[in-house]
Amino acid sequence: MSNPFDFMDHLLELESKIEELQNLSGQTGLDMSEEVRSLRDKLQSETRRTFDGLNAWQRVQLSRHPLRPQTSDYIDHMVEDFVPLAGDRAFAEDYAIICGLGRIEDIPCMIIGQQKGKDVHERRRCNFGSPHPEGYRKAMLKMRVAEKFHLPIVTLINTPGAYPGIGAEERGQSIAIAENIRDMAALRTPVVSVVIGEGGSGGALGIGVGDRILILENSYYSVISPEGCAAILWKDGSKAPDAAERLRLTAQALHELGIADEVVQEPAGGAHRQGELMSRQLGAVVARHLRELLAMSEAELRDARYAKYRAIGQWQE
């Protein structure tokens, strides 16, 4: 398959030209600051122009970029004093979901996030971000701890979908997800859910029932993967770009559809270019929502959450 990121090639070229000029300047002692500045301006405007014009499929590619920040990166750069908490107390530890206590801008909270893995070893251990039932059950167990001790919950969604396998079915993948959805809907503590990469269907929703749903600019959230949709509709997975467009799964589309409460801007060139900056930006947004939600009474919070999901849907009567 061709390079899925070819839409960024011209930006990388510009970047390497700037670097070249700088090297040349260093080697020869010639003052190239004018040229460098003008190229930098051009890079900036080109980057903006390129990213503003990205289509749905290109954003899906970015959401899957191998260097895109993951839950572990946000824990490193957005969360302080993190205490990891493992185990579903029943079957196994599922590395595809990371849980733990931590502070975001001094707000103590429970963090639950899906993890795809940073290297080959971790990716395999995480099943590339596809949780098993034990992952969902662990997540709910930790959310119960948060509820008991009046800590708000932040969930970071990044999964191509719940794991499709024999063991997952044997241990009740559907039931685990269904129970999480129901129990999150009734939690007595605030929940902020952020789609940081892929929001793959029920596998995402299993940790996704937030009082607020935030989505990063180049993330997606969908009822089915574009590939799966294309395979069903046209018996042709290569029509995924077309399916991506029609499913209206981008951050912007989700905001327009009233599903996402806020689209979180990514640094120039995408979150993968400046992971630490992305973490700081997201931390500020999450903290703002947490503060708003923490100011609500438990009854207000639960009523508002019910009303939020109760209102989703369109029909004629």
């Binding site: 269904a178 959805i181 809907a185 269907s201 029920g202 929703l205 029932v209 959230y221 969908s222 009822v223 089915i224 949709c229 069903i232 509709l233 499913l247 209206r248 799964l249 989700l254 559809l257 599903i259 999901y309 989703i312 849907g313 369109q314």
Partner: peptide, 12 residues
Amino acid sequence: MQEGVISLMQMT
């Protein structure tokens, strides 16, 4: 599928 993420949210 034809109602996209709106269908997904009916689960919730």
